[in-house]
Design a protein around this nucleic acid. Structure first.
Length: 657
DNA sequence: GTAGGGTTAG
């Protein structure tokens, strides 16, 4: 593929490339120019052409389109590139495969003009095979037909879709070589897009910097490129310099923050956007809702639903907003509201179903998830890879090993979704949680794709549940290579060694962490008060104004639980200290502080909702179970992985998390 | 002909 365009720089002046087709095309063009409007025949023909084009415009199905095509023939316009280019464009829009119809139309034309060529090139650039676009461009040039600017936008799009940077560079060179196309605004913008798609942000930036004229699209293309690499600072700098900001540019920033796990910044930006009087549409809202989902706070969920309803973009009628809200409510711990939104939606797509299935999964409602999946496959909505992650996760969280294995084996055969590393991670999780650690290890070592951090992490997590320090060491050695800075992995291994009383190993891991300059993430829980304020608690925290009341509540709960036979689980402390110190550490865990505050603050009969940044420990889990029994109220804890619904002394996770 | 989207397991 080196320099496929080598010969074309001189194509226009080279006799060998100006054969029959060009002369025919030129003759046709000249004839029409000479004809002008002086002949009544020409006017008639023009009218006929326009009528056929508007007929094509109105076609919304292949049957209609074929009828119009037959009419084109009957009227003797089967060589008219103006009408045929429109026909090809309409076929492209309908998603008809280029080779099945458009190419046939094209072959019957003796001298295709640049627009007909471009229409076909565009077809390939959208649906592939992308390289066919280049092939067509090559023959176009061989025939001496000059490209137009949107020939290049189509070609560049194909290069971007094919992720072929080399080819993109060659097309870029062509735009400069054959006559100033690179100064066309559309071509410039598409060039930036091509470089960005091919992961060459530097070249995209260079095109942007050298453009004579830019518009808001040039800026936004680059802003999005920065947000996708996680560089929100550069994105923000560009945005600040953008002279006229439109809704799309604002949305790119809001969504960028949400996608980079900065939900508070996303909401702040959205508020700025509203203050600037910029309109909101479903895409903006999708980003805002995703930010609210990450915060997991009921107050924000209600607020954003209000905003959506007021903009006429409520979840009932808008599938994008609705799907995002299903996810948001389930991540706010409110699976009932998530399901209400889901049921109320007029249209549901793969995002809607996947969000709901994942919602059921993280709330431990495996049967509901399976049932919904079965309902889904009876609709026309095809499950995708995320849907299967939801289904497998649901099985995993309740130990439905056989069901999970069955789904996994049918994924590719029945639904055409090839299992990737993520799906294998789910399977390792499923087997490992259920205690089949050797089988899980074997699958990890024999899986057809290279296991990533998620796979070894699932195995390590299973070793923690089933206290297997030996397999844990194997998993951890891979993890420390793949994710050397992920503190959680080191902590899990510490905990596994601590539970086994292997304090020398604990100390080795701590040394390893210190050597890499890693520090444990402090445990943090938060609770939303009646007034919608967020109260944050760290482990061992005494800074809260009601700290002494909180301790009083905890002491009282502890005594009452002890009366029912509760014993503190000292192995949850990964420090080699005395029993009394361990007991003290356990009672100061952040989720216990949040629970006590929740009891002081919230209204009776309402569930107490606590959020936590780390996984809940065994002692807190057991404590929460007991408290839910004593107080007769539901306690919902969202840890970094899933939700626990504590009710009447048991948890929805079945002590299996 | 060019820009922004919601769901991802440990």
């Amino acid at each position: 593929m080196v320099a496929i365009f080598r010969n074309f720089s001189t194509a226009r002046s080279s006799v060998q490339y100006i054969p029959r087709r060009l002369s025919l095309y030129a003759a046709d063009r000249d004839l029409r120019r000479l004809d002008g409007n002086s002949f009544p025949f020409f006017d008639e023909r023009k009218q006929l052409e326009s009528r056929l084009v508007s007929l094509l415009d109105g076609c919304d199905g292949l049957v209609q389109l074929k009828q119009v095509h037959a009419r084109v023939y009957r009227k003797g316009l089967e060589q008219c590139c103006y009408v045929l280019a429109k026909l090809v464009r309409t076929l492209n829009e309908l998603g008809v495969p280029v080779d099945s119809y458009q190419r046939l139309v094209f072959r019957q034309v003796r001298c295709p003009n640049p627009f007909l060529y471009t229409a076909l090139i565009r077809g390939y650039s959208v649906q592939g095979p992308f390289r066919e676009s280049i092939g067509l461009y090559t023959s176009m040039r061989k025939e001496g037909v000059d490209p137009v600017s949107f020939t290049f936008t189509a070609l560049l799009k194909a290069c971007g879709a094919a992720l072929d940077l080399n080819l993109g560079r060659q097309v870029h060179a062509q735009t400069m070589l054959i006559g100033g196309f690179c100064s066309d605004l559309y071509v410039g913008n598409t060039l930036i897009g091509m470089y960005v798609s091919c992961c060459d942000l530097g070249s995209g930036r260079k095109v942007f910097d050298e453009m004579l004229h830019r518009d808001v699209i040039s800026w936004t293309t680059l802003i999005v490129a920065y947000t996708k690499t996680g560089d929100m600072v550069s994105a923000g700098d560009l945005f600040d310099g953008l002279p006229v900001k439109d809704m799309v540019a604002w949305t790119a920033m809001v969504t960028g923050f949400a996608q980079n796990a900065k939900p508070r910044e996303a909401l702040q930006f959205f508020k700025r956007m509203q203050d600037a009087g910029v309109e909101t549409d479903e895409v903006t809202l999708a980003g805002v809702i995703s930010a609210c989902a990450q915060l997991g706070v009921a107050k924000y969920a209600k607020w954003v639903q209000d905003v959506a309803e007021k903009s006429g973009l409520g979840p009932t009628d808008n599938v994008v907003v609705g799907s995002a809200m299903v996810d948001m409510y389930s991540k706010c711990g409110n699976i009932e509201d998530a399901y209400l939104i889901f049921k109320g939606m007029k249209e549901r797509n793969v995002y809607t179903y996947s969000s709901m299935i994942l919602g059921f999964a993280i709330h431990g409602l495996a049967q509901a998830a399976m049932q919904l999946f079965n309902e889904m496959v009876e609709t026309e909505t095809k499950p995708n890879k995320v849907t299967f992650i939801g289904v497998l996760a649901a099985c995993s969280h309740v130990g439905m090993v056989d069901q999970g294995k069955r789904v996994f084996s049918l994924m590719e055969k029945h639904y055409g979704v090839v299992p990737d590393g993520d799906h294998y991670a789910c399977m390792i999780d499923l087997l490992g949680r259920a205690g089949h650690l050797n089988e899980a290890l074997k699958l990890t070592e024999t899986m057809p794709v290279k296991p990533h951090g998620g796979v070894w992490g699932a195995l390590l997590g299973a070793c923690r549940i089933h206290r297997n320090p030996d397999i844990a060491q194997i998993a951890a050695s891979h993890l420390f290579e793949l994710e050397p800075h992920a503190i959680g992995n080191y902590m899990v291994l510490c905990n596994i060694f601590a539970s086994a009383g292997r304090w020398d190993d604990v100390s080795d891991v701590r040394k390893l962490m210190r050597g890499k300059g890693l520090k444990k993430n402090p445990g943090c829980s938060w609770f939303e008060s009646k007034e919608g304020e967020i109260h944050e608690f760290f482990a061992g925290d005494t800074k809260h104004p009601r700290s002494s009341e909180i301790n009083g509540v905890l002491e009282d709960l502890l005594q009452r639980l002890k009366g029912l036979g509760y014993q503190q689980i000292l192995s949850s402390v990964a420090y080699d200290v005395s029993e009394d110190v361990k007991k003290g550490i356990l009672m100061a865990h952040s989720e216990k502080l949040a629970l006590a505050f929740g009891l002081l603050d919230s209204s009776a009969n309402r569930p107490i909702r606590i959020m936590k940044n780390l996984r809940i420990c065994e002692d807190c889990h057991s404590f929460m179970c007991g408290v839910s029994h004593i107080i007769g109220r539901e306690i919902i804890v969202r840890d970094n992985v899933r939700f626990h619904h504590f009710n009447g002394g048991t948890c929805s996770c079945g002590n299996f998390w």
